[in-house]
Design a protein around this nucleic acid. Structure first.
Lengths: 160, 160
DNA sequence: ACAACTCGGATATTCGGTGTCCGAGTTCCG
DNA sequence: CGGAACTCGGACACCGAATATCCGAGTTGT
């Protein structure tokens, strides 16, 4: 089980966007974190499709959050990048072989699938309780209150 | 994020093994669920390496659980098949770019990594609370108490 | 009207999961 | 005690998805 690498970039990108009132191009975010610009753009497109960010074209265009950062959960971002498919997918092998369970007895998912689904729910719940605003606040606290102002200043300076 | 398909086979296999006092060959388990025998063998080897099952060679050989099914958690099996690497791996991109955080300021993992780790812990905890014995009991209950006896009978019949 | 900048999707490449095979070792039977 | 059959174990192809990239369509500001 491995999570796409783009999730990290998307989350950092959302935190960055939460500090900018005006649109920020994908290229700008990419150079902030020194990551491949074209690939980051691909993931930002996914965020756009999910309705988390809004894109404006043309000069002075870029990406903006569609909602306040406190209304965007980490789970939403993860799902936008990585997809909504659960980690465990039951193949229903209980319906195969010499002791196959008849299909009309399989209305409910099997016990293994239920256990895995419960674990997935716990995971999702944990990620739902954290918002982009929480991440930004924690990052700022870790730096002693200097990180977010620095980002805001850098975004303004790069614009000029 | 996707979980290896072999996890399902391994868990079903462990439930089957929990019903057999004598060694069961990989071929036998494979035909029970109508899955590729050679590939299932590969995963059973992983369980062997993890110390969950014990293999005996030669005629009348096969796999056996090393512990009672109530002492084997689902998480152990998942980790044996899928590896112990957490789903989210932090690349530390905060140390890159024009606003790079100095390395000596990065003793603790970043806020994003902490949130993902917490979710992973919740997931792991959920899977630790379920044992192979629990799965077997649930499967039996779902079938109205017929599933496990059927498996035991089939294992005995196939031996002869 | 022009030009520059932006996003968006279509396109190669690499890596891990999927599936398979044959050899080494061991146990049982004659 | 020798042989044969059965078992596991690791080494070998195959495939799909994630990675990484590019260029064209559209829009804004001048």
């Amino acid at each position: 089980m491995k999570l796409s690498n783009g999730v990290e970039w998307a989350l950092h990108g959302c935190v960055t966007l939460s500090q900018a009132a005006e649109p920020v191009p994908a290229t700008r975010i990419a150079e902030l974190h020194a990551i491949p610009p074209a690939y980051l753009a691909k993931h930002l497109q996914a965020l756009s499709r999910a309705g988390i960010v809004r894109s404006t074209a043309g000069q002075a265009g870029g990406y903006t959050l569609t909602r306040p950062a406190s209304a965007i959960t980490v789970l939403e971002v993860v799902r936008a990048i990585d997809g909504t498919e659960p980690a465990y997918r039951c193949t229903e092998i209980r319906q195969n072989g010499p002791l196959a369970v008849p299909a009309d007895r399989c209305a409910r998912p099997c016990a293994i699938a239920r256990a895995m689904a419960a674990a997935q729910d716990a995971w999702s719940t944990a990620l739902t309780s954290v918002t982009i605003a929480d991440l930004a606040a924690d990052i700022d606290a870790d730096s002693g209150g200097t990180a977010l102002p620095q980002v805001r200043r850098w975004l303004a300076a790069a614009r000029g």
